[in-house]
Design a protein around this nucleic acid. Sequence first.
DNA 1: AAGGCGGGGGG
DNA 2: CCCCCAGCCTT
Length: 333
Amino acid sequence: MNETTTWNIDIQTALIEWFDRSARTLPWRSYSNPYAIWLSEVILQQTRVAQGRAYWEKFMTEFPTLQSLAEAPSEKVMGLWAGLGYYSRARNLHATAKIIAELGDFPNNAKDLQSLPGIGPYTAAAIASIAFKQVIPALDGNAFRVYTRLFALADCIDLPSTQKIIAHKSLPLLDPLRPGDSNQAIMDLGAQICTPTQPKCIDCPLAFACEAFRRGTQTDFPMKKSKKVAKQVSMTLHVIMRKDKIAVIKRPSKGIWGDLWCFPEELPETIPVIEGLRKRHLLTHLDLDVHFPESHAPSLWIEPQWEWVDPNVLQHRAIPVPIRWWLEEKNYI
DNA sequence: AAGGCGGGGGG
DNA sequence: CCCCCAGCCTT
């Protein structure tokens, strides 16, 4: 056994022992069925555990099995997802449930998993390692941070070439008998110890092996391209009342708030408008200045795309956060 | 390779 | 205010 091998095994062991001692207790970790694990992984894409946890509980209660999710109406799936963001995840989740239900059994390796909608390199590796014990590194934002520090790797993590290097260098650090736990240990480490700004290296089980720690350059990693500023955009969402009903439209699948119910952005010029509320809504790529002008449509007014709904029940549909905000401001919730 | 896509919590 | 989070998909 050469020196490199023993070094890697020392890291494997330190990681697994730390995991057994200090891992977060998360509800999906008590499940071994791939459905529950897949659901957690999709919900947690670009989403903190603290935010996604309640959604996982809701989905598991409403759809205890993959079959039940596959058979659900999409309106119900989108409604449960409302408020969590990145709504294409919900559409892809539903589409994949139907595909797997049709297949008969759950794909059990990363390559097959990655062919499914909404399952990319990270999620495929996570499911394959956790549910099926495939030895493959699951590289999320946490893992990229932990590994670039461990290796003092100064390459930009946005580049696919860098991600390949990390996948290659991290593979031997996984315990071949517990690859899922090794991956989850790295992610837990990133969330609790190897944090972006103030890493707690004094408590880190991998400090003995960490090149950035040895150099005192932990916060130099990971390197990434500077992000662009969010574009400022003004958006008009017309609040149109007809008697006691309010006009809503279902937004197209592509674009912001895809498949969600929203107030119309366009209004026939024949309907007079009064100024309404205004709200700033920040997204990663947009700085929205949302206007809510109010108007009243004649009692028999028909607009093909609009649906007239009771504002008191609108909260139960799949609506974006600004609509929910408006309903709250007007005491409909 | 770059840009679109949500929302919220923590420093 | 700024950061970035168990990323993926399209162009």
